[in-house]
Write a protein that binds this DNA or RNA. Sequence first.
DNA 1: AATGAATGAGACTTCATTCAT
DNA 2: TATGAATGAAGTCTCATTCAT
Lengths: 199, 199, 199, 199
Amino acid sequence: MPKVTEEHRAARREQIISAARKCVLRKGFHQASMADVIAESGLSAGAVYRYFKGKEQILESIADQSIGRVEDMLLELLADGAAPHPADVIETMLEWIVEHADDEEGDFTVIAVQAWGEAVRGGKVLDIVMPKIRQIRELWIEIARRWQAAGHLPADADPQHVGQALMGLFPGFIVQRLLVGDVTPRSYANGLRALLAAR
Amino acid sequence: MPKVTEEHRAARREQIISAARKCVLRKGFHQASMADVIAESGLSAGAVYRYFKGKEQILESIADQSIGRVEDMLLELLADGAAPHPADVIETMLEWIVEHADDEEGDFTVIAVQAWGEAVRGGKVLDIVMPKIRQIRELWIEIARRWQAAGHLPADADPQHVGQALMGLFPGFIVQRLLVGDVTPRSYANGLRALLAAR
Amino acid sequence: MPKVTEEHRAARREQIISAARKCVLRKGFHQASMADVIAESGLSAGAVYRYFKGKEQILESIADQSIGRVEDMLLELLADGAAPHPADVIETMLEWIVEHADDEEGDFTVIAVQAWGEAVRGGKVLDIVMPKIRQIRELWIEIARRWQAAGHLPADADPQHVGQALMGLFPGFIVQRLLVGDVTPRSYANGLRALLAAR
Amino acid sequence: MPKVTEEHRAARREQIISAARKCVLRKGFHQASMADVIAESGLSAGAVYRYFKGKEQILESIADQSIGRVEDMLLELLADGAAPHPADVIETMLEWIVEHADDEEGDFTVIAVQAWGEAVRGGKVLDIVMPKIRQIRELWIEIARRWQAAGHLPADADPQHVGQALMGLFPGFIVQRLLVGDVTPRSYANGLRALLAAR
DNA sequence: AATGAATGAGACTTCATTCAT
DNA sequence: TATGAATGAAGTCTCATTCAT
């Protein structure tokens, strides 16, 4: 029975998180009420509280999921050991983001931005978001390292710093896309390419 | 009587906004209650509602102020008509941000990030934040244009796109500084410099 | 100076009561706020409180006025000492009510009905409304008396009771007119005439 | 489970309405606060709001009930198909009203008068009260029709008008009873009898 | 395990009234 | 006398959470 129970638990948790994500997208992180989540999930209040300690925990799980989705993509791009041009990596990443922004589960970048807003206040969401950002940045640092090894970057450049800058381009794309709406992976990457060709 | 009244009104509004900013920094955009703001302001509930229609309006005013503070700085940097090196502009800007982050009024970047989280859900905060971002980006585009005119950027580069990329570096710095804490204006700008020197 | 001051006071009071009446018609007896009344009157809060002790007193004054307007009319009808047919008196009265319902000062029957609703709870409004009703009813009793003296009513009829019944026809007309809207002085009086012709 | 739940819901609603009625009788339609109702009901705030959307809805339910209680009585009187003398019907009705005025649930006429005061301002209470008055008046029209058929009223009398006049006698009785206090079913009906015997 | 009715603290807001100017 | 900014108690309603069934 343990196996069945475990799967059951996981399914229920996913059901609840999925409902909560919809509510958060509709109403916002804190504006989404437990009543909303409960109704959307199709479960009872008691059931939801059996699987999550409270609202906070549900929001944390959502933040966790939504921030984490970027990492898998980057790992894939790095898999073949090549030293891709950073602007190309960026463009690929941004395209992937845009593509997945409106899948069935809703735009995860919307949740990510809200999660940043939540995390800046410290608390558990910060504990969740910070490591994720660190991990993803490690991948960018790795890309910088390879690019430097291939002779594209100055020998004395610090890959950590280059990683910070590369990593730093993402929030700016997401914010501009969500709030202003006029950036595309292509335009943004082109801007970066122009900078990389600077004299 | 008119002069006194007008100044008085402005002072009261600032008093309330300042109190609200403190509360928002302490508790978060929506977690800050009107009771908190009222207590912090030292006024009565009725007085606060004489100057603001409701909580929403106060939050909007805070978002407005906090996002707006960047623009003045950039305008200043652009004043002398030179074509400063983008990495230098960025570094100066970031230093300015870090310096002003913890003045008496509290870290405005914390509020800015929360305002993004609020703005992605649309509504009035978006109406406030979006134009601000646009205006600031125009300044970056202008910087790109000058830099291109000085021969540093490829002639066929689109300043709009370069502006997007430069503008895009800010949220990433702010988020990394606030959530991870290990970026400095220097390290970030150095990362950018390395990229600009790429072959 | 006393005379001028006295006239001034009276004018101010009327100004306030008139404003309050408009507000009451718009929003209801208790829903009308002092802020409404103050704005409508064109005076300041302090000024209004100089002439009235509080909201209660203003409402009482309105109730007083609106209930009182019927009496003058009846007195006029009785002036010539005749023994008019009750149905005719009623019809004349109802016509007068309908005519004056929508003059510049607004429909006083609307306020009268609200005043009844207020008076049933006791309090000062009752102290104001009850004597008014008594006075008006006295006039109906006088009409009944004259009609009896003229031989139209049974000799053993109690004019007090007939006065109650005649008086009682008014609220019913007002309520039906205001709430259902399909009664006219003519139809109502005709109904009464039919009853008076009963065998 | 469905049966229990349904009965439970109805019982709770009645519990709340009953408490609200007491509060309204004590303080008035709008002066009764939700805190009063909640305390009187013995439930929690949340529970009350589970059964009623808001204060308005509770007041509407009270108005509905209190105005509606007259109809049943009239229907009963009409049941045997006879053509009772209107003054007798009136007297019976008034006696019934007086008897039921102070039962355990409180004087419904007090609430009815307040409901009129509410209804004159339009809104939902009007939508509730108007049809009730219409329905009850239909019964009076039916009585007039039967009385006419029995030859007591002139053949050319309009039963609609007679019904208006008969219906119109009620508010007048209620108002005089509640505000002046000196009318009785007997005295009022006698006054009407005298009028009906007029020459 | 599941339900959903109930809880009650606390949220936002209004408004009659006062009082320093 | 007049003003109108300020007060703060009180109002209505919400919502995360619990617990008897």
